[in-house]
Amino acid sequence: MEHGSFNDPSQGTFSMTDEDHTLANSIRFTLNQDPRVTFCGYSIPHPSDARVNIRIQTTGDPAREVLKDSCQDQMLVCQHVRSTFDQAVMEFKSKKALKSLESMDIKS
């Protein structure tokens, strides 16, 4: 999965199978937001094989740890998105139910 030099853990290219822009682009964003990362980019070497290469260079921390942390960060973000969304939907539904209840009261 990992290509890159064994001497210098602070940089590496990670090759992921069965992934595309969906994961690679969002991970690139999360990685770029990490202050330890000096460079990050991704490429899809050939459109007909399902594979992305993610290149990471850091200020000194091991690249694979930084990548793992970024994945962890992104999971936290996703969880927050999910809970916020669920809450918004619930609020909307209860508001709608209340409204229909009120209109029923007016009619009766």
Binding site: T22, K68, C71, M75
Partner: peptide, 12 residues
């Protein structure tokens, strides 16, 4: 998307 991230973590 969460599962995808988790897959990367477990694979690494």
């Amino acid at each position: 998307l969460e599962d995808k991230c988790e897959r990367v973590i477990t694979e690494m």
